[in-house]
Design a protein around this nucleic acid. Structure first.
Lengths: 248, 248
DNA sequence: TCAATAGTGTCTTTCAGACAGTATATA
DNA sequence: TATATACTGTCTGAAAGACACTATTGA
């Protein structure tokens, strides 16, 4: 953060008055993903007010900007976390959140100039159950990406934002922090494979996937958990992601 | 872009008055890279006004926000291109420009809340010569990244922005559109290798790099150009990037 | 016993890194 | 002739895709 201001600069700052140029509103938009029933889903809320009342949109809201130099308001990440909690009840720590990019085409909001900072949020399936019925959003639902979702019918430019977010999650799924945020506490090889297949929208060879999985085990990213899971026919070994290096 | 507004929404919009919440200023910041003398360089301008007058900073400026709903101002990419031309004289088409992300920590600008959208711009070495002496920037200079540059002495949070931009260029150099923007019209294998070595800050085995290069030729990304380059000892074949698929 | 999934192993291709060797310019 | 660089080729290992095979369970 650069150097602290010099006394001369402090003096200058006291007398400084920002120009009266028009300013944009700034929002955060959230693409909240989860995987359930071997299917990638994204959270949408139905808008209750104009414009586009009745249409589905990504959750989000305005970044709080403070009234003064000493209180400039909240950070972008903080705004994303706050909106996420307000609209879904999901608290910091239970979600993986990452900024994607800013969208700022003139006219993207018919009311006024709005620049939006897009975030991707990843929610484990257990958490996703809790989501429906946040305090703010009247109607919120997970939609199957590319199935029961007609992206071109979304409000604003959320089709573009969602498309960007889907590309992001496909690129980043190999990052164990990303995959970790999409699976339950413990999981089998087949369950992690199902997540990959749902996100990528393609099938993986079970044997080849198992080989990559085992490499993650030998690399210490994944560790075995006690017990076995009895779901289909033959019981399967159970694993969990190792606690991240940075935290220990 | 969603659907057009319904007549009812048009009516509603006429009566709509945006709330008087405080809004942030929004700027674009540019990390303008070039490679010269086998060295990755980034353009900095010396600030002539407070705050941080005298310190070096990334070029950039405010996004123009229109005064009305019908004129909401310029797109973010347009703002980046405009600022780039104002401060360096480089026109659209002569540079590769890509958005990185938004930076919006409270306090990053001591004057007021400013949210900045960071861009990376890539300039071929021939163009880079022209840069010094733009109309706006009193003093502008290319600094060798990680050599004669003390990033912690930059104004605002430009150390973070620059760090993000350097990571970006290292990740994306394999994209031929990115590499293409950093080399002259024609180049030898060794010259492209020098660009890679400068950006990555590591040496590459000449034989192995040549193999990758030849794969790009067989893939049609690079084509041979007439003549040979006589620089050191043995003259070398000359190549150019093939025109992008999308343009043809 | 059968069907389904868990789990193992093999063959091939691709590509990167290390490095040896040949060819051809200039000094 | 010496040396630096252009250019070619080989050996090795890591990893992915295709696919065959065995093992173990529940129905």
């Amino acid at each position: 953060m650069a150097r602290p201001l010099t006394p001369a600069e402090q003096e200058w700052l006291k007398r400084y008055e920002p120009g009266e140029w028009p300013r944009p509103s700034v929002t955060v938009d959230l693409a909240v993903f989860t995987v359930r029933d071997a299917d990638l889903k994204v959270l949408l809320v139905r808008r209750k007010e104009p414009p586009y009342a009745g249409l589905w949109a990504l959750p989000g809201g305005f970044v709080r900007v403070g009234p003064s130099r000493s209180d400039q308001g909240e950070d972008l990440d903080a705004a994303a976390h706050r909106e996420l909690e307000e609209e879904t009840g999901l608290r910091r720590g239970t979600v993986f959140l990452e900024q994607l990019r800013a969208f700022g085409a003139p006219g993207r909001d018919p009311r006024m100039r709005v620049i939006s900072v897009a975030y991707a949020a990843l929610v484990a399936p257990e958490q996703a159950m809790v989501v429906v019925g946040g305090s703010d959003a009247a109607e919120a639902r997970f939609f199957s990406v590319g199935q029961d979702l007609d992206a071109s019918a979304l409000a604003f430019d959320h089709e573009q934002v969602l498309s960007c977010a889907v590309q992001w999650i496909r690129r980043r799924l190999n990052d164990s922090a990303v995959a970790c945020a999409l699976v339950p506490e413990t999981f089998t090889v087949a369950e992690l494979r199902a997540v990959h297949e749902a996100v990528q929208g393609a099938t993986h060879d079970p044997g080849n996937f198992r080989r990559r999985f085992k490499r993650m085990v030998t690399d210490g990213l994944i560790v075995q958990a006690p017990g076995r899971r009895h779901t289909g026919t033959k019981p399967a070994r159970v694993y969990r992601f190792a606690p991240a290096r940075g935290e220990a």
